[in-house]
Design a protein around this nucleic acid. Sequence first.
DNA 1: ACTTTATATTTCTAATTGGTTATATAGCTA
DNA 2: TAGCTATATAACCAATTAGAAATATAAAGT
Lengths: 109, 109
Amino acid sequence: MANAFEVLAEPRRRQILDLLRGGELPVGELVHRVGLTQPAVSKHLRVLREAGLVEVRQDAQRRLYRLRPGPLAEIDSWLAPYRLLWEQGFDSLAQHLSTMPDEQTGAEQ
Amino acid sequence: MANAFEVLAEPRRRQILDLLRGGELPVGELVHRVGLTQPAVSKHLRVLREAGLVEVRQDAQRRLYRLRPGPLAEIDSWLAPYRLLWEQGFDSLAQHLSTMPDEQTGAEQ
DNA sequence: ACTTTATATTTCTAATTGGTTATATAGCTA
DNA sequence: TAGCTATATAACCAATTAGAAATATAAAGT
């Protein structure tokens, strides 16, 4: 339903993913670390789950959430052509230089 | 006001940036290509401008918009630690293998 | 069975947002 | 100056959303 871009627009969801980079965590622990109410965290987890960014595993009453970085590749690949630009120091001013004869390829800033 | 993540959550704004990768364009041209009304496009352009993702230049009555990829670096750097994960074929199942002795480093899928 | 623990879901609300229509602004042209 | 062109802004609306509080579910412990 939601793609990775929309999901990551929410800072708390990025925070949750960051926390899960360290390994799987139960909901309660996430609640404690992000400082939201439990329902709020569960809601974010559902969004993350539906986007395929996390996975759950049950352990008694607890649910252990685990990171699934796969869908982030979509963002990465959208970003790819832009990465070239800023890596070359390409930004605003530099852009119209590309249409010039070509003497020095030196980056401006 | 808005960071790059929030700005990119909107597909039309990503589309506008994609169009500007080909060089600067006047608003009218963007309106034509994205198929929204002019005010809608101007609104998106304002958001992009305020996020530092585009820049305007005036040419008579027209405003030429130009890409400024710089702020996308924020996203790229947030993404960096995750990129390692999926590039290694790391996803869900593979994650708990990291805590194992270490024999074969072969990717699963 | 009852209680506690852990989590999900429901309901509600306030705020935000993408879009439209209408209007303003400003440069150009006749 | 009047009118046209290009764009921005304002006013408004419907839909979405993050969060809180309340409730449901379910597994464990007693």
